[in-house]
Design a protein around this nucleic acid. Structure first.
Lengths: 226, 226
DNA sequence: GCAAATATAATAGTAATACTATCATTTATG
DNA sequence: CATAAATGATAGTATTACTATTATATTTGC
């Protein structure tokens, strides 16, 4: 159990920072404040200058922690992915029925966690919102291959792999488990964006989590054996 | 039939340009060259300055046609959406079986068209690649609500609506047709990006269009009545 | 408690970006 | 051929995404 815990100590890939932001008070101010500020401005309008003003510091100081705003966003997204993997492991650990485990996994991947009862820390919910609205912009770039080589996507891949394993228990013949999981993760983020801004592309209903229900229905139907 | 054709004369929403690029030779050089250049550099590294050099013109001249590079990209994406709607209407027009019509629609939405036999013009294929890799970056921004009000998404919504109608013929009780279609459109683009750069998230197989097959399988299973 | 190391702040500077403005020149049109 | 319209050439601004330098705090090791 020891190696298990050490794996889940929320430790973001060190290629994403120049200096560990958790190692100092300024570092913590940088990451905590950037979550709000990116959310507020949108990543395009977010700058280190604006962040520096918010935390009463300077651009130069922030650059000692992160080499670019893209890396900072990747850091935050990785932090979120670490939260998700943690929950995925612990919340499915003692469920023996693979279908119940998959239900739990779909919930974790597609819903916005309840801050009080589900989130493992105070930033999981705001991080989820960041990942939802901004992550795809730093993923779908020309730099993706270089970043992949640095290991930026290892946690993400590990999450997909874990859920794929559950799917294989339920229907080992299903030919597209990886695509099903990755399209669920990214698709649910996008559907929530659409719900908020382009509801005509969705089947929005007040007071119901249509996104989670949509994917719950979809995944189980797709895995049905004929 | 006349009003039909006039609807499909590839006419991109006029809120997207200051001066119609199809009205002059320079305008056409701008849009044709920008397709290649955005694809080559990625939208983040694409600038009007670089485009101006490529077409032997100036930044100022390009700004007479498009108020920003975002609007230019939206213009190109809308152009692509117009191609897709055109094909969607004409290629399904005389198919009576709704399942065969849906098969065709999924093909049009999820595949990369064959330049010789399928594309309706010389830019559909490069436009598809642009839409695939870059569209989400201008869609998921803080400006989306303003752009939506200007009608930038009307063709996109119309495409979704057309496919939703087919789905309703096949299974009128299915509760999430809009989400199914919009997740298919965006998801297939992303899955193709993953295939190329993060194949571990997919079920890539040499020589097969796994993306189209994945969605073909998925949509029909999801629409099955119990 | 003090020196040395380290972290941060303050400031300055650069090249590129995303524009706007002005004016001269070319090209199309009536 | 005159006039308008389109384009080119040039310049300029504010912002961005950094890098570099030096001064001032703050921490730590002895």
């Amino acid at each position: 159990m020891k190696s298990f815990f050490s794996h889940f100590k929320i430790q973001v890939n060190s290629s994403l920072y120049l200096k560990d932001p958790h190692s100092s008070e300024l570092g913590e101010r940088i990451i905590y404040k950037s979550i709000n500020l990116i959310d507020e401005l949108g990543f395009e309008h977010f700058t280190f200058k604006k962040l520096a003003i918010e935390i009463n510091s300077t651009e130069a100081s922030i650059y000692r922690y992160f080499e670019s705003k893209q890396k900072l966003l990747f850091y935050l997204i990785n932090w979120y992915w670490c939260c998700v993997e943690y929950r995925l492991v612990f919340e499915t650990a003692n469920i023996s029925d693979p279908r119940a485990r998959l239900t739990k996994a779909i919930h974790i991947l597609s819903s916005i966690p309840d801050g009080d009862s589900e989130a493992i820390n105070s930033v999981e919910v705001p991080l989820k919102k960041l990942a939802m609205n901004e992550s795809i912009k730093v993923m779908m770039t020309k730099e993706v291959d270089a970043e992949n080589k640095e290991g930026v996507f290892s946690v993400y891949k590990s999450i997909v792999k874990r859920v794929v394993e559950i799917i294989k228990e339920i229907n080992p013949k299903y030919p597209y488990p990886n695509m099903l999981v990755s399209s669920l993760i990214e698709g649910s983020n996008q559907q929530r964006f659409f719900e908020a801004h382009l509801p005509g592309l969705t089947n929005f209903k007040e007071g119901q989590d249509q996104v989670e229900q949509f994917y719950m229905d979809l995944v189980f139907k797709v895995l049905m054996n004929e």
